[in-house]
């Protein structure tokens, strides 16, 4: 059952990601991204990370992707045009991505036995476990993220403001 679900959603995920790159209309790409995000959520669930899976659905598949499609529709973006630059990306990008994929596959296949077991979910299960990690062990990164969000807002305001 586990394996079957993993294979099905793994295939969905990869197919969605490929479709995202190959589609030329932004809205199609955005919709494929939703497929990727949702199938990733299932994969997280299979790994035992229930909270992460739920957060993935709510935050990524839900909020962020709605915003994405909303913006694309609002801007009424058309088909992307192939320029010289994007053709170059095809020539240089695909071999690069293929090489990276090759290295990672090689590593995983040849040294797969060394990795040991994934221990996700064994420790962080309940809300209190999660809170302990988030508000105790990683309190500072959590708080510092607020500065990150603040500068993002600041930047958006500064760059988007109308010129006089």
């Amino acid at each position: 059952m586990h394996l079957a679900l993993f294979i099905i959603f793994g295939v969905f995920c990869v197919a969605g990601a490929l479709n995202l790159l190959l589609q030329r209309h932004p809205i199609n790409s955005a919709l494929s991204l939703i497929v990727v995000m949702s199938s990733l959520a299932v994969l997280y669930l299979l790994l035992g990370a229930e909270f992460l899976a739920a957060a993935q659905v709510i935050v990524y598949s839900g909020a962020i992707m709605v915003l994405f499609t909303f913006v694309i529709m609002l801007l009424n973006a058309g088909k992307e045009e192939r320029t010289h630059g994007s053709r170059l990306a095809y020539i240089a990008g695909f071999p690069g991505a293929a090489a990276l994929l090759g290295i990672l596959t090689f590593v995983f296949l040849s040294r797969g036995g060394d990795f040991g077991q994934a221990r996700l979910g064994e420790y962080i299960v309940t809300t209190s476990d999660l809170s302990r990690v988030l508000f105790r062990d990683l309190l500072l990164p959590f708080e510092v993220t607020s500065v990150l969000i603040l500068i993002a807002i600041l930047g958006a305001v500064a760059l988007a403001r109308k010129e006089h």
Binding site: L138, L140, P141, V144, V147, L150, I151, A152, L154
Partner: peptide, 30 residues
């Protein structure tokens, strides 16, 4: 932004946790 960017740079030099390094790196970069 100059001041906040410096916050990120300072955290980068003191962080011993890669997650904090990442958040700080993003503050400084963004």
């Amino acid at each position: 932004l100059m001041l906040f960017g410096a916050v990120g740079m300072m955290f980068m030099s003191g962080a011993t946790e890669l997650l904090l390094v990442f958040v700080a790196l993003e503050i400084s970069s963004i």
